[in-house]
Design a protein around this nucleic acid. Structure first.
Ligand SMILES: [Mn+2]
Ligand SMILES: [Mn+2]
Ligand SMILES: [Zn+2]
Ligand SMILES: [Zn+2]
Lengths: 148, 148
DNA sequence: ACGCTTTTGAGAATCGTTCTCGTTACCCGA
DNA sequence: TCGGGTAACGAGAACGATTCTCAAAAGCGT
């Protein structure tokens, strides 16, 4: 079930933050919980809006700070959703993930998975003079609606 | 020879602009010529700096404008080089292209090509409810130097 | 050369993101 | 349980890349 996985990720993330020596703070926890509810990329400002209207309102700075810390710990991945804005998506500890096709006209984002693509990426990564830890793949074009 | 290909691209781009109904303007031509000289991604501000100190100085706005028009016509591809800045790279009319591995610590960018990766991408693109016209692939990690 | 339209560039405006800094909340040790 | 030392927080300022504005300066068909 999806809800199960989500709360598992939140637990996982909070535990990882604790292990990394972070104190337990309300704002950061709120960001983790909000991220857990999204199955695909959200922007920092979307999260900000969601969290601003909370009992103790979460500040913009805290949202960005938490996202950066989560990214640093490999709990969240940043992807370019559109012109100059970053999207954030939780990283499943099992390594299971998806990529996106994005419509250049309306911005619609469709996730996809492909095992042979992953295989090809892994192989290429092995030949690079780099310690490759992640990869971004984005297919760009027009969605069925915008393609007319 | 590389220089040959570069001027060919400039010709190609200028012709395409003309076909699209654009008048021949000095600033835009300068941007095309500057792009032709780069084999890998450059930022708009890098181009701006290169072109600002010209006989008739090219303005920042013109650089961005030209890049947008070139992108629209499929003559240039935009890629995310680092946190919030776009890189621009000319698109070879033959479809020949490369992708990049980027160091998260120093920003070093290494280009690579891989035929089986392209094959996997083409296959995935075919299964999407999208008219996919291009794709971005970025490998992220640490370069040999930063990996210690 | 004329007149209409596109192109151009300096500077202002935007917008996402990051920084600053005084206040608040944790956490650990006494 | 009670500080005291630090980490976390949030409001707002600062930033940097990109976009917008608008008046002046070219193109181009006639
Ligand atoms: Mn993948
Ligand atoms: Mn490719
Ligand atoms: Zn669309
Ligand atoms: Zn490096």
């Amino acid at each position: 079930m999806s809800t199960q996985t989500q709360s598992e990720w939140a637990e996982h993330a909070l535990a990882a933050l604790a292990d990394a020596g972070y104190r337990r703070g309300g704002a950061r926890t709120a960001v983790v919980e909000a991220l857990a509810e999204h199955d695909c990329a959200v922007t920092a400002l979307d999260l900000d809006e969601e969290l601003r209207r909370r009992k103790p309102a979460v500040g913009r700075a805290s949202v960005y700070r938490a996202l950066e810390q989560l990214e640093q710990l490999g709990l969240v991945q940043r992807i370019e959703v559109c012109r100059g804005t970053a999207g954030f998506e939780r990283i499943d500890p099992t390594g299971h993930h998806h990529h996106h096709a994005i419509c250049r006209d309306c911005g619609k984002m469709v996730p996809f998975e492909d095992q042979s693509l992953e295989k090809a990426l892994a192989q290429v990564a092995g030949t690079m003079p780099f310690d490759v830890t992640e990869h971004d793949v984005v297919l760009r074009g027009r969605c069925e609606h915008c393609a007319r």
